[in-house]
Design a protein around this nucleic acid. Structure first.
Lengths: 132, 132
DNA sequence: TGCAATTCCTACCATTTTAGTAGTATAATG
DNA sequence: CATTATACTACTAAAATGGTAGGAATTGCA
């Protein structure tokens, strides 16, 4: 029941981009320095955020990343799901069509409820909530 | 962000014990058969539950396990914490004395909130809620 | 033109965690 | 004293985690 570094670092990258936004692109080198995370590992995390369409990017000299939208328009849950993958607490909830034994399983609706509690919370926060 | 088999099976063992309780001890052999889990693996899970004081046990012939208390007196959160270990979503929250950078970290209170959301939910359910 | 800075993409790897299996000792019962 | 059961400990294969590494593609600037 742990969030991995991917999700945690992703939030740090996004808050870093939000807080240091001056209109220019921000390089991973700068973010890595501020956050104390290796550039090479950040590349992989940013790739996920980028694939999800959360960033504007520019390659080459003076290139880097910046946010696409205003901080209050980023749902934290979206960021976490994009980097952590599915946050469902157990496999049964992720299976397409649902677990076949859901009607027999006494725990199923409990896990459903936990899943909902988690998602309700992370979807109630935006990037703006974090940086203030 | 997954619950492991330890926690999931633990809940199944507890519900099995609750539902099949006729006053006699219930052997792992029976539980294993009903639940489709190997006896040997169940031994390890039950050991955790036992260490937490949730069970009455009897060795030898006709031995086995039974619940200590009424189903409604078992908090699901307690069962999960006993078998999964700490459910805090990130390491910072588990560190004794708290994360040293908590005042600098923009995400800290977000993770605290997630931890609370999870624990509030799992502590609001009892074994009785599951078996009905 | 060419070099430096940067993202992009993919492969690799050590360590830890997960999900068990296995063996043996200990205890109780009939 | 054989059978049935828990108790304890060691081992292990496979997967996930948390990175490192190398090189290709792109862009800005001197």
């Amino acid at each position: 029941m742990k969030i991995s570094t991917k999700g945690r670092y992703a939030l740090r990258v996004m808050t870093d981009l939000a807080m240091n936004n001056d209109g220019n692109y921000i390089s991973l080198k700068d973010i890595a320095k501020r956050q104390g995370i290796s550039i090479k590992y950040l590349e992989q995390i940013v790739a996920l955020l980028n694939k999800a369409g959360y960033l504007q990017t520019a390659r080459g000299n003076n290139g880097g990343y910046k946010l696409n939208k205003k901080p209050e328009e980023y749902i934290v849950g979206d960021i976490l799901r994009a980097t952590e993958g599915d946050l469902a607490p157990i496999v049964c909830l992720s299976e397409k069509g649902g677990c076949k034994e859901r009607n027999l399983c006494k725990s199923y609706s409990f896990w459903e409820g936990l899943d909902k509690a988690v998602n309700d919370y992370i979807d109630s926060k935006t990037l703006a909530d974090l940086i203030q």
